[in-house]
Design a binder for these strands. Sequence first.
DNA 1: CTATAGTAGTTGCAACTGCAACTATCTCAT
DNA 2: ATGAGATAGTTGCAGTTGCAACTACTATAG
Lengths: 154, 154
Amino acid sequence: MSSKLSKTHNLAWRKFLVAHVMLIEQIEQDLAQAELPPLSWYDVLFALSEAPEQRLRLHELAEAVLLSRSNLTRLLDRLEAAGLIQREQCSSDRRGAFAVITNEGFKMLDQMWSVYGQAIEKYFACHLDANEVKFFIKILNRLTRATSTKSESY
Amino acid sequence: MSSKLSKTHNLAWRKFLVAHVMLIEQIEQDLAQAELPPLSWYDVLFALSEAPEQRLRLHELAEAVLLSRSNLTRLLDRLEAAGLIQREQCSSDRRGAFAVITNEGFKMLDQMWSVYGQAIEKYFACHLDANEVKFFIKILNRLTRATSTKSESY
DNA sequence: CTATAGTAGTTGCAACTGCAACTATCTCAT
DNA sequence: ATGAGATAGTTGCAGTTGCAACTACTATAG
């Protein structure tokens, strides 16, 4: 019953969606053109490279990458097949496994970043000055925090 | 050579991505919980409902919905099977077809909007006051305009 | 202990996606 | 007219996704 969504807010939402697809499409295209794997690979490699000991439990990784688990399983299969990560048994929990980034993985991470980083600059960052970017972050923080609770719809 | 992406801009980009997945996930969940079809259906129905005569050529629709054509073909198959749209031959171009929204389609559009609209309000709009939303739109416009030139469907 | 519930990760399946190849039609310079 | 090239939409295929069911193990209650 609350609703009463303003025209302007509605417009903002549509533009948000459009901006997202266009940017992602463009970036994926840049990566593909450089014969590099898709963004999802980057996300995994990046998360692992930042993690202590370059390794994460699979469920932690899934969380970090915002991916369902079944999805992550098969994404890791591909990365493992490409030699970019390895699975390692967890000694303290025999169900569990770590994903560990390999040297090859680090190399790929660098290669991808050289394209990805430039793309972010080219399509995104260069359009936001120092004040704007802070404002932008402030807003996005609010949006994510509100949703992060995973609250029921009440 | 230009690059030199600032930490802050990089952060903004990540938050943009995270905000997007979280919002979409949440909204899709709300729709699913109400036993309604996914957002992509809404987009098609909405575009058609706004169009003159409630119909669009398929390629116009694909453009409006930011979907590849092959994708749209099959999305429309599903919508047609569900009775929400119909295909109609184009008299002036025998290759072409229109998608037309049916009465059932309009009904579904309303049902979906009652959930979707509330969700936008609840997860997005309510976090932005009048000034902020304008600013947000201004930024998004810049981002899309910069990218828009290149996203032709080959 | 042992039963019960919970968690970690994988797998089967059906749906959805993008790309490239295909058919059919239209456009236009010759 | 006519043949080269563009455009409209569909289809085949291989890759990717989400969901639910499954195996294996852990944690907890009695």
